[in-house]
Design a binder for these strands. Sequence first.
DNA 1: CCAGACGTTGTT
DNA 2: GTCTGG
DNA 3: CCAGACGTTGTT
DNA 4: GTCTGG
Length: 249
Amino acid sequence: MCGRYALTADKDALALEFEVDATTDVQLPPRWNIAPTSDIYIVRERQEGGQRVRELVVARWGLIPAWAKEESIGARLANARAETVAEKPAFRGSFAKRRCLVLCDGWYEWLPAQPARAGVRQPKQPYLMTVTGRQHVAFAGLYEWWREPGTPADAPALLTANLITTDAVGVAAQVHDRMPVLLDHHAWSRAISDLPEQPVAIRPVTTDVNSVRNDGAYLWGEFFPPTLDPSAVAEAEISDQDSQDQTLF
DNA sequence: CCAGACGTTGTT
DNA sequence: GTCTGG
DNA sequence: CCAGACGTTGTT
DNA sequence: GTCTGG
């Protein structure tokens, strides 16, 4: 699963990298500890005069279905299961028409604390997960618009989003049985079931990550700023050729 | 028909 | 909004 | 995801 | 124990 992640890049750098046509004016601060209900960057596509327009926008993490009576349900809908996302009433509309990319530098998973001396509570151990050779990762996600019941239809709506999870594979499975659906940077158009497996790197980080009150580059320790393996970067650039079809997974 | 749910995770 | 359960 | 709260009244 | 907030 994924309930915490980092995103430190500037919006304009992300806009270039993800080849968007339009970019929000809102600059979010760099974050190493993003939790559900935080503002995040997503990339979505809309049709405009027969053209597909890709935009980088801000959304709130935690999808609030359009029919929800309370905003608070969003905090519990930070994820959607890939196995059922097409059928679940809360998600199927978004899955059919409102897919997005959720951008991040890396995400966190936790292992239970080691058993300690009696009476001493040990914190859970967080692990930082990144995709080898990439500074940024796109999760498969969904978005939705929500207005508090009774608000006029022309009032501004709240844009919310979540990310799709699937069975963990590879090294990610050593820490957890679920993981986000990782979209190959240049294979956004492939169906979820047909996505190539991404090489994931896992590193333990400070338990300061556990509290959402803590944030800063220090949470990544020596792993920030990330240094990329040059061979992995070269390979990524070669596969650039794939990005013809613009449909999001 | 109306009322009520609609979700994921981890943990037991 | 839409489906399920009663 | 983890951490932290979990409640009401009257008075300032 | 369970829900809410971040």
